[in-house]
Structures are given as C-alpha cells and as structure tokens.
C-alpha cells in the first residue's frame, strides 16, 4: 500500500504541475487587480515634469528626467553598476597570463581594425547628442564597450590597461559629485543647473547647462565599467 503511493507520486511530474498551478493562480490574481483598477491617475503624472522640462532648454525630456529631476538616483545607480563590476572582477580574477591557443579568423582581424573607429565614433555621438536625440550616456557607454568586445575577440594580446580604467572612473565619479556640490553652493539644490540654459538655444549642441555635461560623465563611467566586465568575462575564458 505504502509502496504503491510512492510509485504514483514518482510518476506524476509534481514540480512541473505545481509550477503550473502556482503560476496560474498568481496570474489570475494580478490580472484581476490590474484590469479592475485601470490606472487613470498615473497617466497624468508626467505632465508637470514635461512642463518643467521646457524651462531647462533640453529637447529630450527623458534626458532631463534621468539626469536632472532624478539625478541623485542616477548617482546611486552608477554606484550599483560600479559595485557589480567590482564583484565580477573579484570573482573572475585570473592570475595567470592568458596563453594564446588559437588565432582568430583573418577576416575578423581585418574587419575589426576598420570597424572599431566607426563604433567608437558612433558611441561618442550617441553620448554627446543625448540631450537632443534618442540616446545618452548609458547607451553610448555600452556601444563603446561592445567595440572593446570586438577588439578583445579579434586580438588575443589586446588588453584594456587597468590604469586608464581607474583614471577614467575616478575622474567621472569625482566630477559628478563636484558638479552637484557646486550646484548646491550656487543654487541651494544638489545638481542645480548653474550654467546658462536659455529656452531660445534649444536644439543647439551647447544648450541645457549642466545636463549634457553630466550625461557625458555618466557615459564615461558606464563605458569603462562595461569594458572591465567584458574583459574579465573573456580573459577568464582563455585560461581554461
């Protein structure tokens, strides 16, 4: 009797079935909540910020929200990114020099030399024009990191120098906080826009005061951290 019960229990895929049942119950509950209380109020939450955005002279409203209205949160988020990058470097440290096992393809080697300046230029463009068009520091930094990835997989001896990364990251973090503190001194708010930001200059490259400056700083920090993550992941795989 007892043995038969156990055998029946083993035949049924209990983990799969319980996963299905739990997922179905949760989906019914949350669908009920979401479909009954249609969110009418949150649709108008951004109108005030959109009106305020026009006084800063920045064309892209998302940039203003990320860098100016939520600038302190962005400082915290790039700190989270720094801590994650540091943890990956600690986990995947490789003491041995990587031994070159196989050369990469000839076409990859040639094409990466041609493509890397173009990717670098595009990343810098996306970073600098973040207050005028879609894009900004986060996207530009990741594009530059993918260019570094292309160099890393094509050339086995290539390595981003660690001192350069340390210098760039220190410069970016310190200048973010310094610009915020200058705003605190001049305008009594952290990250106050103390540079000229005239509404008539909107759409020009030099507009918006400190907002494009801070997004370029965020781009430098994100790009160096992503490059370190990519390099740690690839270099560790070489010395298997």
């Amino acid at each position: 009797m007892n043995r038969r019960k156990i055998s029946i229990k083993r035949e049924l895929p209990t983990a799969t079935l319980s996963g299905f049942v739990l997922s179905a119950l949760l989906i019914l509950t949350i669908l009920n909540i979401l479909l009954q209380n249609m969110p009418h109020k949150i649709e108008t939450a951004g109108d005030l910020l959109l009106k305020l955005n026009t006084t800063e002279g920045v064309a892209n409203a998302v940039t203003t929200v990320v860098v100016y209205f939520r600038g302190f949160d962005t400082l915290g988020e790039i700190s989270v990114l720094f801590i994650a990058s540091m943890g990956i470097g600690l986990m995947l440290r490789s003491n041995t020099k990587c031994n070159i096992k196989s050369e990469s393809n000839f076409m990859l080697q040639t094409a990466s030399k041609i493509l890397f300046p173009v990717i670098l230029l595009f990343g810098t463009y996306v970073m600098i024009y973040g207050h005028l068009s879609p894009g900004g520091g986060f996207q530009g930094g990741v594009i530059i990191a993918s260019g570094v990835l292309l160099l890393l997989i094509s050339d086995k001896a290539f390595e981003v120098p660690h001192s350069v990364i340390v210098a760039l990251e220190t410069f970016a973090g310190v200048s973010y906080v310094l610009i915020g503190l200058i705003g605190l001194l001049v305008l009594d708010t952290f990250l106050g826009n103390f540079l000229p930001h005239d509404i008539s200059q909107m759409g020009m490259l030099l507009s918006g005061g400190i907002i494009p400056l801070i997004y370029i700083i965020v781009g430098i920090k994100v790009g160096s951290e992503m490059s370190m993550i990519v390099q740690n992941l690839i270099k560790r795989s070489d010395d298997v």
Partner: peptide, 13 residues
C-alpha cells in the same frame, strides 16, 4: 517625448 527646435508644446507627448 522629444521636442523640436524652439517647440514648447508638450500637450501631445
């Protein structure tokens, strides 16, 4: 939510 040059109408964004 991206404005044009000297275009400050935000009612349809």
């Amino acid at each position: 939510p991206i404005l044009d040059t000297a275009h400050t109408n935000v009612s349809n964004m």
